[in-house]
């Protein structure tokens, strides 16, 4: 076995998760396929959302897969980077908004 946590070849083996639990994997992949189909959102819009989420969840497999996918869907570099900024802003905002809790707690303890 490779002595590393992430092996680029792992992405191509994604389907193999069925080896240990087939019914759930089958349901997951069917669902996954359905989600990414053209719907109320275009396949291109979904690709950019997936690229942003890939960065949000920091999955190197998903980052590779959806960078390629976004290129194939005709997204520009600027569009891809803006999608990542959305993820970054969300993560930053989600961290910072918790500061209100810290502030309330501090004020409560110090009687301010």
């Amino acid at each position: 076995m490779a002595k590393k946590y992430y092996d680029p070849a792992g992405l191509g083996k994604f389907g193999n998760i069925a080896e240990f639990q087939k019914p759930m994997a089958d349901k997951f992949f069917a669902y996954y396929g359905e989600v990414f189909k053209e719907g109320a959102l275009t396949a291109r819009e979904k690709s950019l959302i997936a690229l942003a989420v890939a960065h949000g969840v920091q999955c190197p497999y998903c980052i590779d897969a959806y960078s390629t996918d976004a290129l194939e869907k005709g997204c520009s570099e600027a569009q891809m980077m803006e999608a990542v900024h959305v993820a970054a802003a969300m993560r930053g905002g989600a961290t910072l908004v918790h500061a209100t809790q810290m502030m309330d707690h501090v004020k409560d303890l110090t009687g301010a």
Partner: peptide
């Protein structure tokens, strides 16, 4: 004519 600028495949012709 659009051809991908690298090692990837073209997406949907209509969308592009």
């Amino acid at each position: 004519v659009y051809n991908p600028a690298g090692a990837f495949l073209p997406g949907s012709q209509d969308e592009l």
